[in-house]
């Protein structure tokens, strides 16, 4: 198992490199000159050169990339063009909100998706199944941010059960933290719940027809036990795969849902950075997001190995 993790960690390196080259060269294509944005129209020629010099923009592309890469490896992602904030600090400061949202939605979608999928898969064709399948189809068509608006106007504005906006860090108050991310996580988790429910349903239907399920029944194990122990573990295998795909969807979705609930996460950071053409910030955000995605995918791979012994390296 350790060797598998090591291998996967190593495999991440080239992918990260490619991502960095891509974002770096894309951002080099930016049409407007960031220096103009910084000093405004009335800057003198010397000022202009000075800023260029300070930002290292007078260097050739490759030198800039190599320089950036070397520093990135030591964990230094540079400073923002616009305020002397360290990119790393800015991103890390915003990360907890976005991650709380994302993982909250992962939890919700696993719970909802599993429950609905198992209920539907146990009796294909029953009204439970038809309701769940119908719900999943609708769920996948609802934009997460719209669902967020609806949730906010019902549960926050009208009923006042949850705060409509803002994020409370976990370290400040766990209870308030939970309240502040409940609605956004629900909004975000809807479509993934639907995707998981569909997967679990079809996996469950397939697994329940397997010989080993019949053999377990023949051994006199109760239906409950057969479903919850023997069938579910096998039906979980595809769920893990879905989850590893969905993580990018969820992280991306979080950027948007954050806007509905006025949560200062990576989303608003990225939008501001794009508006200001803040190159180091954009690069840093992309790189860290990709890192998060890869770590999550590594985790799902390990999980996959745990529930599916055939996938384990021998």
């Amino acid at each position: 198992m350790l060797r598998l993790i090591g291998q996967r960690l190593l495999a991440m390196v080239p992918l990260l490199l490619i991502v960095s080259v891509m974002t770096f060269s894309f951002t080099a294509l930016l049409p407007s000159d960031p220096v103009d944005l910084i000093i405004g129209d009335r800057g003198s020629e010397e000022q202009y050169e000075m800023v260029r010099e300070r930002l290292g923009l007078n260097q050739p592309f490759l030198t800039r990339y190599a320089d950036w890469l070397l520093r990135a490896m030591t964990g230094d992602l540079g400073t923002s063009f616009f305020n002397s904030v360290q990119v790393k600090d800015a991103v890390l400061q915003r990360m907890p909100a976005t991650l709380s949202l994302t993982f909250g939605s992962v939890l919700i979608s696993i719970t909802v998706g599993l429950a609905a999928g198992v209920a539907a898969g146990l009796r294909p064709g029953s009204w439970v199944d038809r309701t769940a399948t119908f719900g999943a189809t609708i769920g996948q068509a609802i934009p997460n941010f719209w669902f967020g608006i609806i949730l906010a106007s019902v549960f926050a504005v009208s009923l006042r059960w949850f705060p409509a906006t803002g994020y409370v860090p976990l370290t400040d108050s766990p209870m308030e933290w939970l309240r502040s991310i409940t609605l956004p996580a629900l909004a975000l988790g809807l479509s993934t719940s639907a995707a998981i429910a569909r997967q679990v349903r079809s996996a469950m239907v397939g697994v329940l027809q397997q010989d080993y399920i019949r053999a377990a029944r023949a051994q006199g194990l109760s239906s409950r036990r057969v479903v919850l122990k023997h069938a579910l573990k096998n039906a979980l295998v595809p769920v893990v795969t879905v989850l590893s795909f969905q993580i990018t969807v969820l992280l991306g979705g979080a950027l948007i849902v954050e806007q509905v609930f006025a949560i200062n996460g990576i989303g608003s950071l990225a939008i501001t950075a794009v508006r200001q053409q803040d190159i180091p910030m954009i690069q840093g955000i992309v790189l860290i997001l990709v890192l998060v995605v890869m770590l999550v995918q590594l985790a799902t791979d390990i999980l996959y190995g745990l529930i599916n012994p055939k996938a384990r390296p021998t």
């Binding site: 951002t27 990018t248 969807v249 992280l251 991306g252 950027l255 939008i271 794009v274 954009i282 995605v293």
Partner: peptide, 10 residues
Amino acid sequence: SIPGIMVAIV
């Protein structure tokens, strides 16, 4: 491996 929205944003 980059969240789609982020690619679009870039």
